[in-house]
Design a protein around this nucleic acid. Structure first.
Lengths: 165, 165
DNA sequence: CCCCTTTTGTTGGCGCGTCCAACATTGGCG
DNA sequence: CGCCAATGTTGGACGCGCCAACAAAAGGGG
């Protein structure tokens, strides 16, 4: 039985990315059954929660590049989950909205994803799960500083709390 | 300021993968300066810790596909970090070993990666970091079990989808 | 001894997620 | 009006994980 180098197992970044690999694998299995993938879920969830949005908004909310939003919405539109109509008030934008079929699809994906969480966190107690969630939430909030490197708009300059630490 | 859907932020798998994205970004920045990437580090670390190995061993230890090991070792060999010699005792295998340059390269990458950990975990106290590391280690160990983690095909398990511990 | 299975290195390819560059159109604002 | 910002879109890049196929070599039974 081959062991993994301690150089790796000692590094939180290693643990994080490797566990994320398993999370991604489980999620893909859950999505795969219905021919969906992560990007679809993100957009459907954002649409469900915030209603009609422009593609740029969807990208910012679900942390995707504008170009990837285009592709995902094309696919969702082909499946009839979503519809694109030009925005009369701003002719640059598209008003994207959920269809009933899209809402049903989202529910399916949501159920699949909930099952994934249980598989993923199986060895942890409810308390441990909460602890983990809290820690990860803090980390994510910290690294989502609005002035970060992004082509997704954010007209702000550097000099935040930590250019380099 | 656009918000992320609670459907996402409430899911540990989302938090995990998103934080992993930042970890990956930071690591890439650390590696990028010297033209390396994750696969290189994994192999160098495994070689440093376990000495001369075959490519298949390297793959198992650092969790990589055999084909990806080939590519990574080609690149490392071009950089003079690693050398491939046929194994006289088993003519299928290659004996891969670190060169002094490779060892120096590894040390550089190691220092860069250590800095990354600090950036990544900046908002957490030392205690929190340890807690996080422990939880992730448990999760990783659980999902690396040879017979498959949760759903089926385990010898025995008292609970299927029930809370535990 | 031969046959069958396994292991190993290697090639080539796929899918997903992230990201970037460029472009035309449109809106906002001085 | 003229400039800059935002939007949608196209096309591409890279990293990582994964799989299928193959030839060469090793190992284990009959």
């Amino acid at each position: 039985m081959e062991e993994t180098p301690a150089h790796l197992t000692a590094k939180p970044s290693w643990l994080l990315t490797q566990v994320a690999v398993h999370a991604h694998r489980l999620a893909s299995e859950g999505f795969g059954g219905v021919g969906a993938r992560g990007y679809h879920y993100r957009i459907l969830a954002a649409l469900d929660e915030f209603g009609v949005s422009s593609q740029a908004e969807l990208g910012r909310r679900s942390n995707m590049d504008r170009s990837d939003v285009v592709a995902a919405i094309n696919e969702l539109a082909e499946q009839g989950c979503v519809e694109r109509t030009p925005d009369p008030d701003d002719r640059r934008r598209n008003r994207v909205h959920l269809t009933p079929a899209g809402r049903r699809h989202l529910r399916r994906l949501d159920r699949a994803l909930d099952a994934v969480q249980d598989d993923l966190l199986e060895p942890l107690s409810a308390e441990d799960r909460q602890t983990l969630t809290g820690l990860l939430t803090r980390l994510l909030a910290h690294h989502q500083r609005p002035w970060g490197p992004s082509s997704n708009s954010r007209p702000f300059s550097p000099s935040g709390t930590t250019p380099n630490s």
